[in-house]
Design a protein around this nucleic acid. Structure first.
Length: 427
RNA sequence: AGAGGCGUGGCAGAGUGGUCGAAUGCGGCGGUCUUGAAAACCGUUGUACCGCGAGGUACCGGGGGUUCGAAUCCCUCCGCCUCUGCCA
């Protein structure tokens, strides 16, 4: 969430930033926010005065009772009724303004970093790096992964349909082992890079959803359990980042680096089509996430560090990949900048997004009330960042397709120790 | 799930209607002393908002209520503990 004071001091910058995103009516909305804030201050001031007055009288009454001057005390009571009425009115007015103000702020996205390219759709995303030399020539054996998984019996969508529904597959045999192996590999690599492992809950409350910005923006995209008013997490970002909600970090606790594996649940409402097949899009998938909380001055340096961590992971798996800097229009609600990683899946001849790494600057921290106490003892909002390292199903799809030989599917060497086999075979 | 108890500042722990933003201890910070450190002693030490400032307001798990006045009384929600029950 943006800070009112910052909006006020940088109105043009914020208007431009939102317009860059294609956000309609930015100027009007921001002006509304400023007006609401002005009103808030004014009413708060009036209320404070009224409360001051009635506090004073209440104290006097206390004194009078103590001195046994009951009559005078009773008389003083009558003076407060008008004040009470006034404070009630003002409080209601204030609550109304504050509700409206937060609602406005909740619905304003982050503004893009200056390096974010202009654009409206994914076609305007900027290609930062392309490593496609190792795209295999599959020749005669060029089966998409949805055929391969049936042939080798490693993922079962039918079974998933029966037990849960579409988009909830069973991984079987060497497929199940592959999932477990990749999770362990990714977690080990994150640990090597200094990320402390956590295993967070996979359900979150409303406050956490608001904290990282999934709510109210993505309300309809999360599974909601009404009986308990809890949500299934769409990413480990939510529980892990919310570990630091209402926290003031000391300098020596920084940087905060966490990694965690969780299943991720997404309703993907409205995003299904004929182009979505196999592992390309699921309602439940596994992901290893990396999260950092850092000082503002260091966040862009840290962003680069996270980008290269993800890049090294993909490289180590031997997959062709490209890195994109998302254009303003394609940027997530809370992000100031995002790098997407895509791997090339050679049989379906498609680039698949497998990671996105983002800097949220103070946007989440402001909602989370996540602050840093700096050397001078002053508190400032932290910067939060996160990235997928990595999301599994599409990685799996690319490995299966790119490494098929006709008789087997070769596994990347780095995974061998994690799998207990070097290739997937028909059995 | 049922019964009972509890939820106070970084921590521990007083406080059952006014003088309480809150005793006391520990911890933290500053100082005295010391070659240095410890101990001892002195001082200081919550957060947010408004205001140039003086100062004001709010906050004792969350929300609501009673009252001139609430940490204190009532309602409700959440959480924790104990016992009973149930169950990975």
């Amino acid at each position: 969430m943006l800070q009112v004071a910052t909006i006020k001091n940088n109105l043009d910058k914020y208007v431009n930033g939102l317009q860059k995103r294609g956000f309609k009516g930015a100027e009007e909305l921001l002006n509304d926010v400023l007006t609401l804030d002005e009103n808030r201050k004014r009413i708060q001031g009036e209320l404070d005065e009224v409360l001051h007055e009635s506090n004073k009288i209440a104290k006097e009454i206390g004194q009078l009772f103590k001195q046994g001057k009951k009559d005078e005390a009773e008389k003083a009571k009558t003076r407060t009724s008008e004040l009470k009425q006034k404070s009630k009115t003002l409080t209601e007015e204030l609550n109304g303004i504050e509700t409206s103000l937060t609602k406005h702020l909740y619905n304003i996205p982050n503004i893009p970093h200056e390096s974010v390219p202009v654009g409206n759709t994914d076609e305007d995303n900027e290609l930062v790096k392309l490593k496609d030399k190792n795209i295999p020539n599959l020749g005669d054996h060029k089966k998409p992964h949805w055929d391969l998984i049936e042939e080798y019996d490693i993922v079962d969508f039918e079974l998933g349909n029966k037990v849960s529904g579409a988009g909830f597959p069973f991984y079987k045999k060497q497929g199940a082992r592959m999932v477990r192996g990749m999770i362990n590999y990714f977690l080990d690599k994150a640990a090597e890079a200094g990320y402390e492992e956590v295993q967070p809950p996979v359900v979150i409350n409303e406050a956490s959803g608001l904290g990282t910005g999934q709510l109210p923006d993505k309300e309809g995209q999360m599974y909601h359990m009404e009986a308990n008013d809890l949500y299934l997490i769409p990413t480990a970002e939510v529980p892990i980042t919310n570990m630091y909600r209402d926290v003031i970090l000391k300098q020596d606790e920084l940087p905060v680096k966490h990694t965690g594996h969780t299943p991720c649940f997404r309703r993907e409402a409205g995003s299904w089509g004929s182009h979505v097949r196999g592992l390309n899009r699921l309602h439940q998938f596994d992901k290893v996430e990396i999260v950092q909380v850092v000082e503002p001055e260091k966040s862009y340096e840290v962003l680069d560090e996270m980008v290269s961590h993800v890049e090294n992971l993909i490289k180590s798996l031997g997959l062709p990949y490209r890195i994109l800097r998302l254009c303003a229009g394609d940027l997530g609600f809370t992000a100031a900048i995002t790098y997407d990683f895509e791997v090339y899946s050679a049989a379906q001849e498609k680039w698949l997004e497998v990671s996105s790494v983002s800097n949220f600057e103070t946007y989440q921290a402001n909602r989370l009330k996540l602050r840093i106490k700096n050397k001078e003892g002053k508190k400032e909002l932290a910067h939060t960042l996160n990235g997928s390292a990595l999301a599994l199903p599409r990685i799996m799809a690319a490995i299966l397709e790119n490494n098929q030989t006709g008789d087997s599917i070769k596994m990347p060497e780095v995974l061998h120790p994690y799998l207990g086999f070097k290739e997937i075979t028909r059995r």
